[in-house]
Design a protein around this nucleic acid. Structure first.
Lengths: 197, 197
DNA sequence: TTGTAAACATACCAACTAGTATGTTTTCTA
DNA sequence: TAGAAAACATACTAGTTGGTATGTTTACAA
């Protein structure tokens, strides 16, 4: 896949922005901060992006969305055992995602927390992210019900809400307590998932 | 309880700060923003607080901590039925806490998300908050186990992590989806709590 | 090779930030 | 009631912010 030099520049800005925003927050991360980690200047930044917010939205759509799809959605598609797939998705993203650091939580959860109430455009973009994941979990549970591996009276919407909330929440708690709560959470998640079948 | 005029001024700054920080975030909320909602000026602010951060910490300890203790901890102390107490605590804080607005989530969760990774002093103060709640939930579950109302093989640490994570997470999700997910979450929480007994 | 538009760099600006220096008023005690 | 300290108000600063105006370089087609 060919990328022009300009396209590489643009993507590198988005990547560096993603790294910094992950650790500092969106509003606390200035354009100068981002540019300081690159070899670029403001001319380059504002050539590729009209405003900081437009860059932020591009970051959501072009960096965060592909990342979350790979880690959170693809493992659920066409899963043999839905219960096991749900657990392993969670365990993998919590314990084995190499980029994530426990003190900084999850980039997507962070951005939702900070920007969803403030900017309608961020709200919209991040809502799509969550709805995609929600749908993937729901479908996964429904397939489990259809194949008889999950109890009939289980509510797929409820399970999806529980899992998404659990993930977002334990990312929050991890910022204070550290990784130990991840393990505690995963144990309890396994117990919970067992009650579904 | 008598309060000097100065004490009232100080507390009103903390209250207004709490309101604004709840809606805008800590770093995005400037001292001028806070003072604009009062009849005060910078002289008053920096007479009562050495820095913005010291004001923020006072807000955590003197406004947020009492609030969360009243809503999240007291209802669990000496609860007759622990399972019912846990559910009602959650239902009440999610649906009936008058100050909270779904699009802004929970003030404590917001501040943890934003400040825990950045400031050690905030991290410390907010950690105390969460540890208190965690301990209250754990004690509540243990009492349930002791009284035979909760199954012996239930892990109090796991339940506490699950509930705290669930709460923080659904507050996050509510910012995107709205109150509907609160109801879905509460239904599933009821199912989960039922499996404990 | 040459022209030209794309892809940047440099130098700026007005608005805002936390914080300070120095006043003035209020409160309360002696 | 006088005075002094507490409780504020006013005016300012240096640094940072997103964004702009204008220049220079690079890539690429003719």
């Amino acid at each position: 896949m060919f990328m022009s030099k300009a396209a590489i520049t643009r993507l590198s800005i988005l990547q560096k922005a993603f790294d910094l925003i992950y650790m500092k927050g969106y509003q606390a991360c200035s354009i100068d901060d981002i540019l300081a980690t690159t070899e670029l200047t403001k001319g380059a930044f504002f050539y590729h992006f009209k405003t900081k917010d437009q860059m932020g939205l591009a970051m959501v759509n072009e960096v965060m969305y592909p990342g979350m799809k790979k880690a959170l959605i693809n493992p659920l598609i066409a899963a043999q055992d839905p219960v096991e797939a749900l657990y392993h998705m969670m365990e993998h993203v919590l314990l084995h995602a190499p980029f994530f650091q426990v003190q900084y939580g999850c980039p997507a959860v962070n951005l939702i927390e900070e920007m969803a109430p403030l900017h309608a455009s961020f709200h919209q973009a991040l809502l799509q992210l969550i709805l995609q994941w929600q749908e993937a979990i729901r479908t996964c549970v429904k397939q489990g019900v259809a194949s008889g591996k999950i109890n009939q009276d289980v509510n797929p919407d409820g399970v999806a809400a529980f899992i998404i909330a659990g993930y977002s929440g334990i990312r929050n708690m991890g910022k204070l307590v550290g990784v130990s709560c991840y393990h505690t959470f995963l144990k309890e998640l396994k117990m919970y998932l067992k009650t579904l079948s």
